[in-house]
Amino acid sequence: MNRINQKLQEDKKLLSIYFTAGYPSLNDTVGVIEELEKNGVDMIEIGLPFSDPLADGPTIQASSTQALENGMTSQILFDQLKDIRKTVSIPLIIMGYLNPMMQYGIEAFCKKCQEVGIDGLIIPNMPVAVYHEQFQAIFEKYGLINVFLITPQTSEERIRFIDSISNGFIYMVSSAGTTGAKSSFGTTQADYFDRIGTMNLKNPQIVGFGISNRETFNQATKKAKGAIIGSAFIKHLTKNGTKTIADFVSQIL
């Protein structure tokens, strides 16, 4: 069974952390992953940096630009992750935009993911229809789970369709906006979390965008299975480097 599905069966709220591969320094990727697992994080999203990350706010944009300046590429990421499964057992997901994956070759990219032990992909600008018609068979061949996004504006009909073609979890975008930390959620988010929570979807939901601390984590996971923290963690890395990851995680859990 895919590590993501296994993890989703655990009887707890899941904390997933996003970070940009090759940030703060090119060779920090593996160290950050190991440190996050050691401190109790349940799942990791490894950001493959892109020059034009449309869905991201300033924090992740800046970390992507820095990672690219550090020399990060798809091939270097796969090289860095070559032995990751010798030390890390939690689910690992690559989150990135479609263009770098297309240039690597979608099938070659998926094959590499399987070789190094990646469990799933999140590609925010991959249309649901294109996945369904062109890529689903390839993803399945290499045992990869594709994670789709839904937002407060996604219609119920579309959520049901996305649920029907998902086989891991649904990435629930907390509010209209790009990635970035918020200090708390308002009633609009609470209503949305409730609404999705009562839809009885077959896939569990993990909330992302705007989660930054214990308060927002708890609000987001009242109904959902877990939450993803990205920008707040990147900010922590920018300020404190990779030595104090334990402090960051302990603020949430």
Partner: peptide, 19 residues
Amino acid sequence: DGIIHGSRTLLMQTKDGQI
């Protein structure tokens, strides 16, 4: 061949797919 600003088209990019 690649993707820029929501469209699949020809675009100037590196081998690694950075625009």
